[in-house]
Amino acid sequence: MANDLFQTVPEARRRHMARVKGKDTKPEKIVRQTAHAIGLRFRLHRRDLPGTPDMVFPRLSTVVFVHGCFWHRHSGCRRCTTPKTRTEFWNAKFVTNVERDMRNSEQLVRMGWKVLVVWECETFDRDQLRVRLSNDLGSSQPRHDLDGNASPTTAILRSES
């Protein structure tokens, strides 16, 4: 029975894990906002592609996965820790996650997609994230900066109207 599996898990841990989201996470929203601010347009969570990428740029044949450093084992990151309790369970889970990530990326590449992974810790510095997305995906002239202010180009266009 499925309930037997979780009887040894403390209630506080169970409540905490139930709140972990699979999509529309804060890091994912930051990457979306940044991509949109530099003029990039995309689709979300295409279920017909392996791994259901967080963002899909069909025109660029590029998909983006926004990975949590903890869940997807960002090597060398301070957020990539292993819980002290039930270590065997967690290590097995992490190995499964990483293997699935690799399998999905390989399938996407075979299908002709470029795969880009943005790590959770990369979303903390929005300027660096903007530079990375611009370099990896290209961009058109941004219409607004990340704070929502009109860019100089947009301001000029508005004043001429």
Results as ranks from 00 to 15, higher is better:
2 A>I: 15
3 N>I: 07
3 N>G: 00
4 D>L: 14
5 L>T: 15
6 F>N: 11
7 Q>V: 08
7 Q>G: 08
8 T>H: 15
8 T>M: 10
9 V>F: 02
9 V>S: 01
10 P>F: 01
11 E>P: 01
13 R>T: 14
13 R>D: 13
15 R>Y: 04
16 H>A: 15
17 M>S: 11
19 R>H: 08
22 G>E: 08
22 G>S: 10
24 D>T: 02
25 T>I: 09
27 P>N: 11
27 P>M: 10
28 E>S: 04
29 K>D: 03
29 K>A: 12
29 K>S: 07
30 I>N: 00
31 V>L: 04
31 V>I: 06
32 R>D: 03
33 Q>Y: 03
34 T>C: 15
35 A>Q: 03
36 H>W: 15
36 H>I: 02
37 A>K: 04
38 I>C: 05
38 I>N: 04
39 G>E: 07
39 G>W: 07
39 G>P: 09
41 R>W: 06
42 F>H: 12
46 R>M: 14
47 R>S: 14
49 L>M: 09
50 P>D: 11
51 G>P: 01
51 G>N: 01
52 T>Q: 08
56 V>N: 02
57 F>S: 01
57 F>C: 07
57 F>A: 04
58 P>T: 11
59 R>D: 13
59 R>L: 14
62 T>A: 13
62 T>E: 02
64 V>F: 02
65 F>C: 06
67 H>I: 01
67 H>K: 02
68 G>M: 05
71 W>T: 09
73 R>A: 08
74 H>G: 06
74 H>C: 07
75 S>M: 11
77 C>Y: 05
77 C>A: 07
78 R>K: 15
80 C>S: 15
80 C>Q: 08
83 P>Y: 07
84 K>H: 11
85 T>K: 12
86 R>C: 01
87 T>A: 12
89 F>W: 13
90 W>Y: 08
90 W>F: 10
91 N>D: 13
91 N>Y: 06
92 A>F: 00
94 F>P: 05
94 F>I: 12
96 T>F: 03
97 N>M: 04
97 N>T: 10
98 V>P: 02
100 R>V: 03
101 D>H: 06
103 R>G: 00
104 N>M: 00
104 N>A: 06
105 S>Q: 14
106 E>V: 11
106 E>R: 12
108 L>R: 02
109 V>C: 08
110 R>S: 14
110 R>D: 12
111 M>F: 13
112 G>C: 09
112 G>Q: 09
112 G>F: 10
112 G>R: 07
115 V>C: 08
115 V>T: 09
116 L>C: 08
116 L>K: 00
119 W>M: 04
121 C>N: 09
122 E>R: 05
123 T>G: 04
123 T>C: 10
123 T>P: 03
126 R>Y: 01
127 D>V: 10
130 R>P: 00
132 R>C: 04
132 R>H: 07
132 R>Q: 14
135 N>W: 04
137 L>E: 06
137 L>T: 07
138 G>I: 11
138 G>E: 09
138 G>K: 03
138 G>R: 10
141 Q>T: 11
141 Q>Y: 09
141 Q>L: 15
142 P>L: 08
145 D>P: 04
145 D>Q: 05
148 G>Y: 04
150 A>R: 13
151 S>L: 07
151 S>H: 03
153 T>Q: 11
153 T>P: 00
154 T>Q: 12
154 T>G: 05
154 T>S: 14
156 I>W: 11
156 I>T: 12
158 R>A: 15
158 R>D: 15
159 S>Q: 13
160 E>M: 15
161 S>Y: 06
